[in-house]
Amino acid sequence: MPLDPGFWALQALNALQLSMLLFLLSIGLTVIFGLMHFVNLAHGSLYALGAYVAAALATVGGYWTGFFLAPVAVAGMGILLYSGLIRRMRKSGPMAQVLVTFGLIFALLDLTRIIWGDIALAIEVPSLLAGRVSLFGIDYPVYRLFIIALGFAIFAALALVLKRTQIGAMIRAGVDNDAMAACLGINVERLFFIVFCVGCALAGLAGAVAAPLLSVTPDMGLQILIPTLIVIVIGGLGSLQGAIAGSLIFGFVQTFGAVLAPQLASVLIYALLAAVLVIRPMGLFPAKG
């Protein structure tokens, strides 16, 4: 067991980086659920779509074109899904919604395969963020630090919007009691549409920043889906604090579990999820009291 502090700093940074990636994905999913009780299992597929769009645009116009346009493209896809499917599913039960979005996973998986093929795509880290930087006595890739900073920036921005602006107050009201919010003159449906688009854009952004780290494959959406769901259930559906807390718990348990107890690492996080569900069935920070 290596004991030098640099090693642990490295692991902590890796854990933070994984947490921030998961945070970008889970925040959209959890607020969509909190606001409208809509379970969108296809969220992971939107993340894969974002990665593909970013990879495709990066070959044409460089990394930053992909970085800025992938969220826009995925939000566009979100608008299509919303007007085609999701608006019609709003009145059906959670079971039907789970199944429709499950079907959507299958369909989107094969659509990406048809468009981009089965071969994994890879994109380069942009030159601005290439290289390593010395930190706490270790060399750490700048790009991973960029992901951590981006995650915290998005968290801060969302916290600000939710706490200090009028639309944030409307969203909080909608999550707390959507019927009452509607009675008070808030257009909850339009609010939901906006939140849904922002959630999709964030999923696309997560895909774009993950693309240079992981290879872009059709099943990357499926692989990230389970961790994202674990994050939002541990954290508590519908809340910003829940999403960030769940992401940090997942990132650190996963990373340090792999170092300290490699045999149990993969089981650990599921055991934690089961424990949370038994002790606090609504998660650690539920949006509703």
Partner: peptide
């Protein structure tokens, strides 16, 4: 080889 697409669309159609 795109049989998931067929199942996905079928599933959506049945549920809808």
């Amino acid at each position: 080889s795109y049989w998931h697409l067929v199942v996905g669309v079928l599933l959506i159609a049945v549920v809808m």
